[in-house]
Design a protein around this nucleic acid. Structure first.
Lengths: 167, 167
DNA sequence: CTAAACTTTCAATAATTTATGAAAGTTTAT
DNA sequence: ATAAACTTTCATAAATTATTGAAAGTTTAG
């Protein structure tokens, strides 16, 4: 396998991994392209490389910027904009963990709290609803704390976590 | 908020959380319905409750069984089949972690290994591809180990993990 | 100010995913 | 063996999500 093939394999695999986790293909592919690029890329270059439209590129770049993992780079003397992604995998993981927590997990925890706090009317089904949603709430809450600790931890958390956790 | 409202809120929230993480709505909703049910439910009951078709119910129940989180229950004297989900959240989380690792993370790690193992031809772009995919490989590998440790750990891992990790 | 260079928006369309329902398949009781 | 009870399959439909491309918007150079 040589460069071009490896690159394509990486980008397409990353793209389909994204889909499995609710991230659209174009977004994942743009990010992965930037991730292995040796220099910032313009919109034009991204479009060409991935064979996607201008609009699609623009919208997905915006989303990546909203997620905080892609930034605009202003190249002196150039009029157009260039883009780079966070190159450090740890930092990348941290951003994603933080955002997923904020956007997706926290709101669900809130609902679980509401639902598990309803008045116990004494019936078995109400008791079960309360019991189960409370258990889920506690799990989600613990998982979210873990995620956030990780997200705000200094470098190399994974290595350190593994050490602490399984020593 | 009383029982019916709380129940619906829980089921619909759980359904949309599923979508964010690549799990279809019906599947998530069936699981959540079973999760708060005080008894095993028949296909008929699930269809009625969630207003989904027989085919859809059947296919999603099969998927849930493939994931190992729903099982058929044979009620003596009854001809039809009944279904229950794992009621213990820890066990549930463990199943899901294990399956996601096996189905999604492991294959990606394999690709990352292949891609990061290409011949270094000395060019900057090849070096970058190797470096970045290797970093990603190491991260994915570490995260996967963590997930699997969690998945095979005894009860209450979260509490224990948190203690160890942040004491 | 104005025109060129570039980016964003968004209505229309395409692609993908999910759901339906009836036919085919299976199991069980008699 | 057969018919009723029940489940699965799968072609088709519906719904959702992603993509396009051209028009509108913005910025910068001169």
């Amino acid at each position: 396998m040589e460069y071009q093939e490896a690159k394509e394999k990486f980008i397409s695999t990353w793209g389909s991994l994204g889909s499995m986790w609710g991230i659209n293909k174009a977004m994942a592919q743009i990010q992965s392209l930037l991730f292995i690029s040796t220099k910032p890329l313009s919109m034009e270059e991204i479009m060409d490389e991935l064979k996607i439209s201008r609009g699609n590129t623009s919208m997905n770049l915006r989303q990546l910027m909203d997620w905080g993992i892609v930034t605009k780079e202003l190249v002196p003397g150039e009029r157009k904009e260039f883009f780079t992604t966070e190159k450090d995998v740890q930092e990348l993981a941290r951003h994603i963990a933080k955002e997923r927590s904020r956007r997706e997990i926290k709101p669900v925890i809130k609902v679980l709290k509401e639902v598990s706090s309803i008045q116990d009317d004494g019936t078995a089904k109400t008791k079960e609803l309360i019991k189960q949603t409370k258990a889920l709430h506690d799990l989600a809450d613990a998982a979210d704390s873990l995620l956030n600790k990780i997200a705000t931890q200094e470098q190399n958390w994974i290595t350190k976590s593994l050490l602490k956790l399984f020593k």
